[in-house]
Design a protein around this nucleic acid. Structure first.
Lengths: 142, 142
DNA sequence: TATTTTACTTATCAAATGATAACATAAAGG
DNA sequence: CCTTTATGTTATCATTTGATAAGTAAAATA
């Protein structure tokens, strides 16, 4: 298989995922937070407990800017910062109940959009999709 | 298969693709254009010839803002706008030679990052990845 | 031919994000 | 202990992107 053609297929696939994400998110994101803040909440949601540096690293945000956005989210009572007693420079960030609820509601809306777009999927199709994603997550997007 | 668990897998997959894209793009994008301008060039690159409205629609940019960014790209001599002789309101946008070169060089850098990240892939692996992407592009990200 | 619609442009303002310098404080290492 | 390093904060400014109003000209339509 030609490496360049293979790579073009990857690029095209990434483009499709991004375009699709955009339409999935349409009207789903709460309008009290910005897209980047949504990414942060989503990251914290899936990671349970993280530090400011981790947020900055994983989301490619500079530490000062990550700190700023986390402060805003904290003021909105969507996250909770607790000082790490083992290393008092660090603080552990997690979603507040309100933050969890906001994310769950957002996911509900996204999910609604998703099923409208994708249409009904059979058990076999879901299995196939799941295993395909697993392949890509193992070999390409890790 | 539980629909909610399936959906969570989709969300998590999308998150992984986005994160990976970010690191693929690292230092690959030319610093004479912005991320959004890169998206526009990429779209035009793959679409050959498009109108301003198409760029706006497909990239979820308002028409005025799409017009503005296209004008900037035009001033940078990266795209060419030609008035459509059949409908003189429209103009056909395509990449200039300079624009094509810029995109090709960018793709080279992205490709370099890609192979460094993914490591060597066997023929079988590439086939498996390709067919997995095809599944997802057919069933989910279209 | 007069009116409406389509495609686009220009200008302006607001908001989101990025970049950087200066600072504070805790921990680690000599 | 004293210096260095790591983690984070605050403040400030620039750039990028989003939103909207107003205008132009070509095409479609009544």
């Amino acid at each position: 298989m030609n490496k360049n053609i293979f790579f073009q297929a990857i690029i095209s696939f990434i483009g499709n995922v991004h375009a699709n994400t955009h339409s999935l998110m349409k009207d789903a994101r709460s309008n009290e937070i910005t897209p980047q803040q949504h990414s942060i909440l989503e990251y914290v949601f899936f990671s349970k407990a993280v530090t400011t540096s981790q947020v900055a690293d994983c989301l490619n945000i500079s530490l000062p800017n990550a700190s700023r956005e986390l402060k805003k989210l904290s003021r909105l009572k969507l996250i909770v910062k607790e000082i790490d007693e083992k290393d008092r420079r660090k603080s552990t960030i997690s979603l507040s109940e309100q933050g969890k609820n906001l994310m769950l509601h957002t996911f509900e809306r996204i999910q609604k959009n998703f099923w409208e777009q994708a249409g009904p999927l059979s058990e076999d199709e879901m299995q196939l999709i799941t295993s395909s994603m697993k392949v890509l997550e193992t070999k390409v997007f890790f």
